[in-house]
């Protein structure tokens, strides 16, 4: 293992992490809700059985509205994955199905779940980090597109 110092951005990444933590803390302290992206998205899809759509809609509006502004003022802050379209569609399906079965993703299980000391979240995070790490390892070893 070598550390990629050219790409390493500890200050920006820590600042971004603090903001994500502040966002999650605000929602929990204000409304007692978990800022889980998958849960928010699931609750807004058509024919969702979930009640409490209004806070999810407000959260999504803030997230997407802010994203549009950021894309305008800092267009280089977002980039598309360097994999083929069919591969990306399969990846998207896996992410959607997987996070729904697991009841959470990097935000709900990662940030909020670990902060809540949830044993389920700890297992989920360890599992998806390991699976993701092995996947990148395998696709790189095969000289695949994940770079």
């Amino acid at each position: 293992m070598t550390v990629d110092l050219a790409s390493f951005t500890p200050v920006r990444s820590l600042a971004g992490g603090l903001l994500i933590g502040a966002a999650s803390a605000l929602l929990f302290a204000g409304s007692g809700r978990i800022a889980g992206i998958t849960g928010v998205a699931a609750g807004l899809l058509p024919r969702s059985a979930r009640a409490d759509r209004s806070w999810r809609a407000a959260f999504a509006l803030g997230l997407l509205g802010s994203a549009v502004l950021l894309a305008l003022v800092a267009p280089t802050s977002m980039s598309a994955p360097a994999v083929s379209l069919p591969t990306l569609i399969v990846a998207g399906l896996l992410v959607g199905v997987g996070t729904r079965f697991a009841n959470g993703c990097t935000s709900g299980h990662g940030v909020s779940g670990l902060s809540r000391l949830s044993p389920r979240s700890l297992v989920a995070v360890a599992t998806f980090m390991l699976a993701a790490g092995l996947t990148v390892f395998v696709t790189h070893a095969r000289g695949g597109g994940a770079q």
Partner: peptide, 24 residues
């Protein structure tokens, strides 16, 4: 929980996108 997390991890590794950054 575990199976779902495996599927999510594979998809995340392939695309480099998890749900939050994807929506943004």
């Amino acid at each position: 929980l575990v199976g779902g997390s495996v599927l999510f991890g594979v998809g995340w590794g392939v695309g480099g996108l998890c749900p939050g950054p994807a929506l943004v």
